[in-house]
Design a protein around this nucleic acid. Structure first.
Length: 317
DNA sequence: GCGTCCAGGTCTACC
DNA sequence: GGTAGACCTGGACGC
């Protein structure tokens, strides 16, 4: 059982909405699929520098002028100053509190697709995974599989190889560490997590991370192109996965989202969505420039409302 | 019940 | 450098 260790606070660059940032309408988690969001409080877990922590996150103040996020950390040991700094830096980055999105809103206000979406999701930050390895797991399990099957693989990975964290009267199951997966044989991972051909990729990725692959913070300090190039050196990580992992890096279109953006950009579903991806990416760059990653997340989290505005059902692909 | 198809990509062999 | 084909697994579908 982890005990309350300390609390820190972050002041966000307005506009900032804590609830939408950590609990997105499309259903994606902030750190782990098993985290609990109730009464506007997020109970979750993170692993930083091989240490697991329980976190209780909430909006301590959310007036128009000042938005403060409070983070209570639970731990089973006393933390050094360095450990506290490292944890705070990762949480701050994943909350997106220091990001200024006002320029994106200026562009969005004049854009037919985004103009209502920015009101629907006012203050939401996009996706910035607290840890690199879980983001890589997500990318690998999303490949060539329907969502139900992807969820099955992720659930089995967590159930068989993950860690339970007990804190604040709750138990949250967390992702397996890269070190744990790096030790496994392909047969065990294939059998227990039903990963199929992805097992080899995931073990190779875990070993690369164990052996000194750049951390999420180090990737962020690189240029987007350099970081993407680094990610694509990992076996099983291609163009789509690299862009999915690093927020703001690009426009991670897959077959599903290509159908949606095909309808929004061209007024019709592409005949072959996979073939249409390069052209749709080009259109996103021309339309939204460096903010295309934000537009991507905003659109996919507002599909029911955009469907009403455009008179097409974008929720049924 | 059984066979076939295909899914929210990536890699590799071949040209 | 461009591209067809293979890749685990399980749900959907037709018969």
């Amino acid at each position: 059982m982890q005990r309350k260790a300390f609390t820190f606070e972050f002041e966000a660059v307005p506009p900032y909405c804590f609830d939408l940032t950590v609990h997105k309408p499309a259903g994606w988690w902030w750190s782990t699929p098993n985290e609990v969001f109730q009464k506007r409080v997020l109970w979750t877990t993170v692993r930083v520098d091989s240490c697991l922590y329980g976190l209780r996150l909430r909006a301590a103040e959310s007036s128009r002028k000042r938005q403060i996020v409070s983070c209570t950390v639970y731990s089973d040991k006393k933390l050094s100053g360095l450990e506290k700094d490292s944890l705070a830096s990762n949480v701050e980055r994943a909350l997106g509190v220091k990001e200024d999105i006002n320029e994106f809103y200026l562009i969005g206000r004049r854009d037919k697709i985004l103009q209502h979406t920015i009101d629907d999701l006012w203050g939401m930050r996009t996706v910035a995974w607290p840890e690199l390895f879980p983001a890589l797991i997500l990318a690998v399990t999303l490949q060539m599989a329907p969502m139900k099957r992807s969820n099955q693989m992720m659930d089995l990975l967590i159930a068989n190889f993950g860690d339970n964290v007990h804190f604040g009267g709750k138990t949250i199951a967390h992702w397996p560490s890269a070190d744990r997966i790096a030790e496994l044989g392909v047969n065990e991972l294939e059998g227990k997590a039903k990963l199929g051909y992805r097992a080899k990729s995931l073990i190779s990725i875990a070993r690369a991370l164990r052996d000194g692959f750049p951390t999420a913070d180090e990737l962020l300090r690189m240029s987007p192109n350099e970081a993407k190039k680094q990610l694509m050196t990992l076996h099983g990580i291609g163009d789509y996965s690299a862009e999915l992992i690093m927020p703001g890096m690009g426009f991670p279109l897959d077959v599903w989202s290509a159908k949606i953006f095909g309808l929004l950009f061209l007024g019709e579903e592409p005949q072959d969505p996979r073939d249409a991806i390069p052209e749709l990416k080009k259109m996103a760059i021309e339309r939204w420039g460096k903010w295309r990653g934000h537009a991507f997340v905003y659109v996919l989290n507002d599909l029911p409302m955009i469907s009403k505005g455009f008179g097409v059902d974008l929720t049924n692909f």
